[in-house]
Amino acid sequence: MGSAGGFLAYMEGIGEFWRGILTFIMENRQRIMEYTLNHFSLVLTVLALSLALWVSVGILISRNDKTANAVMGISNILFCIPSISLFGLFITIPYLGLGRRSAALALLLYAMMPLVRNVYKGIKSVDRYVLESGRGMGMSAAQILFHIQIPLAWPVVFAGIRVTVVLITGIATVATFIGERNLGRLIHHGLTRSNSQMIVAGALLVSLMALLLDFLMGLVEKKITSPGLRE
């Protein structure tokens, strides 16, 4: 009997563990709801800001290769700074301080690398003969940008946006250390209390949020990308 009984006991243990997580979530649903909403609003704020900022920057630098290299170099360096130290750095700056402003600014900087790079690459990947025929037909520079370059860059830009969303949803958890009351707090407190169910509950909810956002972005992408660009 030994091994079969052991296996059953093991399975039961796992079942117990997950039931525990569910119970934990149910019992703390009010707090978890607050964390989730905070997390979500932080991610959305950063996403909106970074789209406005980094897409424009990506478009601007596509006009000048020298500037482009410099800007993308900076974005790479920023991306290499460990998030916890960047958060820590910002809270020492007056006006930013503890909380949302520092968190949003740090996440905004992390979003720079994937977004700027993909917008730049997307615009640069537009076939030169398509541009040439656009110019040859008398389209102005603005018309070429809005009617040719941006629509053709969409698939690549969107890949960047989806990476960014997943990335900032994940890094946002670290903002719990500078006073953001979000899902990172579950992980943080779980760690300090050696409560693995709490850690897993936090991680699980963060992943679900990332997957959901990625899925929604996928729907938008499909809606917005011309059928002519799908193989």
Binding site: Y129, L152, L229
Partner: peptide, 28 residues
């Protein structure tokens, strides 16, 4: 731009806009 709109321009690589239908390409 005005000058070019009044001259047809065809190149070997054609350069049709891949995200536009044939109709929209011709209507450009």
């Amino acid at each position: 731009d005005q000058l070019r709109r009044n001259m047809g321009y065809v190149i070997q690589q054609i350069g049709l806009l891949p995200h536009r239908t044939v109709r929209d390409n011709v209507a450009l």
